[in-house]
Design a binder for these strands. Structure first.
Lengths: 194, 194
DNA sequence: GTTGTTATATAACAAATGTTACGAGTCAAG
DNA sequence: CTTGACTCGTAACATTTGTTATATAACAAC
């Protein structure tokens, strides 16, 4: 009956477009018209797949969280020891390359918006809860107080990531700062005898 | 000649109004009309003191940074030892009461906006630089590598503060979380032998 | 009291936004 | 070939926004 289009695939196209607009121009710039233009069509198509601007933004954040979660899972797979598994996931979570840096910057925009948006706040809380759970699982075999340990470690990761996300450095200076953050993480792990 | 009004005082009234609107309804809601209404007047008066919306927001962030800086300075004063001075400043920097929690939430909004706003980004960078400088000064007499030490410590503070700012807890649960963060800071200081 | 500067309100303007409705086009099922 | 569901572009709508201009009111200097 219909035109042969995979709705799921089409939705993801719009989500990608939305993500790119937000990364390049900020959350406020992600209007329906702007996102539709980025996807190469008009609002008519966009509103056919997302009832609301709200729905589009929520789906965009959710998709990003899902992708990040998959990356974490993948990072945990090829590691021989418990410690190496934890370290691999932590390093994967930091914005140490361009893609993840962009991701952190977009997250930062969403965190600000989530202050006054229940849907975004819920999606944020869900991701946060899963991340905390994963961290506790990874720390459990390494420490006898995984709760406090993961609390501190999660805060450290957030702080290091936030620093890089807010940084205005580019090129070599940025790369140096990213290296310093990775080194800081290792220093933390060493001195905390994890 | 003029109507007897202290321009500086009037500006601060608008800055306070802007701050309150942002804290309550988010950065996007801080339109000229909304801020003017919060201050009990119309845009005519507001634009008389701030040429732009940009100027208003930048001034709002700058004022908040100034106030926070003063608080830090004050917290450092009544401390007997170097360690106590550091600890007092760190505790003052965390969102451990309603006022500072509000402050962190607003900052989070501004950080997101600063991703695509050079003026806000500059003001953010200035504050960040001063905060790092203060931390290094406070750590210097306590540790032989104040640079790396302050880097880790600053990240930890950012992470703990961010966690509280993003938290949706209220009432007793929030108070518990705030206590846990203060305790986590102390645990960090102890185990890092600072 | 006259004058000139300042403070503020009102209003207008174009631009942009979210949302909704409508219509044309597309393609598979019958 | 016809029918009908799905896709999507066009367009209209009321709101809201930043910005600017203008007019009125207040008040100090003289």
């Amino acid at each position: 009956m219909p035109k042969s289009v995979d709705p799921l695939e089409r939705q993801e196209e719009f989500i990608t477009a939305s993500w790119n607009v937000i990364a390049r121009e900020g959350l406020a710039a992600a209007s329906l018209r702007r996102v539709a233009a980025e996807a190469g069509c008009t609002t008519g198509s966009l509103t056919h797949y997302f009832s609301d601007r709200q729905a589009l933004l929520t789906a965009t954040l959710r998709q990003a969280h899902f992708a990040a979660g998959m990356r974490m899972q993948h990072a945990a797979q090829d590691a021989s020891t418990d410690f190496e598994r934890l370290r691999a996931v932590l390093l994967e979570s930091l914005p140490l390359d361009a893609t993840r840096l962009r991701e952190w910057k977009v997250w930062l925009c969403f965190w600000g918006a989530a202050m006054n948006d229940d849907e975004l706040s819920n999606e944020d809380a869900r991701r946060y809860s899963e991340w905390r759970k994963l961290l506790r699982t990874l720390i459990a075999p390494l420490h006898d107080d995984p709760k406090e340990e993961s609390h501190l470690l999660m805060s450290m990761i957030d702080g290091l990531g936030l620093q890089l996300a807010r940084s205005r450095q580019t090129g070599a200076a940025l790369a140096r700062q990213q290296k310093a953050c990775a080194a800081a993480l290792d220093a933390y792990l060493t001195r905390f005898q994890i």
